[in-house]
Design a protein around this nucleic acid. Sequence first.
DNA 1: CTGAAAGCGCTTACAG
DNA 2: CTGAAAGCGCTTACAG
Lengths: 353, 353
Amino acid sequence: MPNEKPTSELIAAPVPAPARRSRGAKKGIRITDVAASAGVSPITVSRVFNAPETVAPETLSRVRQAVAQLGYVPNRLAGGLSSAKSRLIAAIVPTAAHSLFSDTVQVFSDTMSRAGYQVLLGLSGYSDEDEDQLLDAVLSRRPEGVLLTGVAHAASLRERLLKVGIPIVETWDMTDEPIDMLVGFSHYRIGAAVAERLLARGARHPALVSANDDRALARRRGFVDTFAAHGVQDIAEVLVPPPSSVALGRDGLQRIVAERPDTDAVFCSPDLLALGVVSQARKLGVAVPGRIAVCGFGDLEFAADTAPALTTVRVDGKRIGVTAARCLIDRLAGAGEKKVIDVGFELVERETT
Amino acid sequence: MPNEKPTSELIAAPVPAPARRSRGAKKGIRITDVAASAGVSPITVSRVFNAPETVAPETLSRVRQAVAQLGYVPNRLAGGLSSAKSRLIAAIVPTAAHSLFSDTVQVFSDTMSRAGYQVLLGLSGYSDEDEDQLLDAVLSRRPEGVLLTGVAHAASLRERLLKVGIPIVETWDMTDEPIDMLVGFSHYRIGAAVAERLLARGARHPALVSANDDRALARRRGFVDTFAAHGVQDIAEVLVPPPSSVALGRDGLQRIVAERPDTDAVFCSPDLLALGVVSQARKLGVAVPGRIAVCGFGDLEFAADTAPALTTVRVDGKRIGVTAARCLIDRLAGAGEKKVIDVGFELVERETT
DNA sequence: CTGAAAGCGCTTACAG
DNA sequence: CTGAAAGCGCTTACAG
């Protein structure tokens, strides 16, 4: 006897029930399936995942058995919608490809997942242009926190992020006015430190081969200002667009020496450019660091080998990753206030002769 | 006059309405806010985002204005739950750090987002152990497709993925029994090709310095089998755990030459190991490729410069990324069947003297 | 071209 | 320690 109607028609039934609609995630095991199988209510199943300590041990194992048997995986779209906790953290980095930030992303992701969060990677591509669009995509997932690379963001991005009211960590840079939390270091001070080191070595005709993103330009300013303070005003420079490469570095030195044959020091950042510069110097028969001192940025592992005469700047990307993750985790746990952490940097001279 | 009760108490009110519960994403602009502001129904607002071509131009612009003014960002947790379309694709890669796969991830992500999908990165960490746990985390987001790195997955993973029934692309490897689609190349054939090249150069005492992951071991098999087919059975080898590094390569050659002073060829993969081997050879005064021929894997950009005598194997990671993305996009659009695409590889000899 | 109602699969805030 | 009801913010499948 299918389609039996309820007998309670005496009690007004104003709207006739419309035909069944098949929609949404019809297939797949739901929490109610597990509940039925384990002989408990859906709420109890939910607790097994989200607050197991509040469930009786015997119930716990019965539910877990049902979960395993049915192969149930909770639907976090539903869970997130219901609880307003997406358990998602967005990490916005310029690029995934051969990047300075990959160490940071790696440990950040590891640390966050150990704390029960998943990382949604947003690739911003070094341009502010689509950053707004990327932010739309990211925010549509309702992340509970955001890691940002750098501090120079379009005003619109700052405002929107501020309005959303979730914890933010900016990284890999320094500023007096962070959006929220900050774990990084000063690129300006790096440029200044490199300049001082080169000055101490006696350099008087410095040059620059550098990427042209915000952070590289901050290093450039520190470099230029410091030389200026010592009376060296005129610095030859080659700015290259991303992605940096050995070839661009090689080409950079070529242009520098053509323009300024008396160049006695080059600050190249990142290290990939420095490798090109060192290689080209070798090809030209120019002694490094004897004739031209070269300093890079990024401390590529193999640089030590490839270019033992190369001074470089080391930054601990892993430390930035863990620290940033901890900041967010603390904040999400209710603790942790607005703070700025400077992880500093290190000038590395390996085997300067 | 707050809390005015409805006047219709004559019509049975069996269950007293419980107190209001504040829960879920209380704050934030909802689709109903936009609808009210634009003077349309929520469905129309939904259409503006998901099927703008079905909305009258004038309505469209009115709604978009309201969206812009209120700063509305659709909640994809809700949208995904309702439509069973998360617009999320999972990409599972071993690591984010200095990786061969970063090019693939980059273009994959770019291509997918241009098609309206976001990429959820899962870092599997080279071990099958937590792969099940990672899969739980990933599947809980209900991705519409999955990109996998490699083809050697635990049987449980294969089964679970198969059961979910979403499109899968395996990448960076080759197999006769893919889970679904496959975009990659044969590591075994690479090992064989390298062996043949070295044999042609006259090598008779080959050695191996290699990572120990599944794909590196497949290259090893191709290498060993091919030499065996030519009567060379005894191959010295050093297998190193991830992450590979220049230092491990250096150490590797040291052990090889100590064990087999007559070694005349070394296959090192990945290239980071090859760089170490070449560097150590230089330190030992061993001519490369004169005394020992060295072949790497991965075609690191700077290797050309660092070790011009290094033969290496180039694989087009970007092509894998785009192709894999296209496979998924086609399939999600209803077209595209199960297929295997071999992107091949290339042996690169730069300036062998 | 537009809208009213129902439902996606969870969790919250109670009450017991 | 456990559960019944309501609701999170969307979209589907209609109907007009």
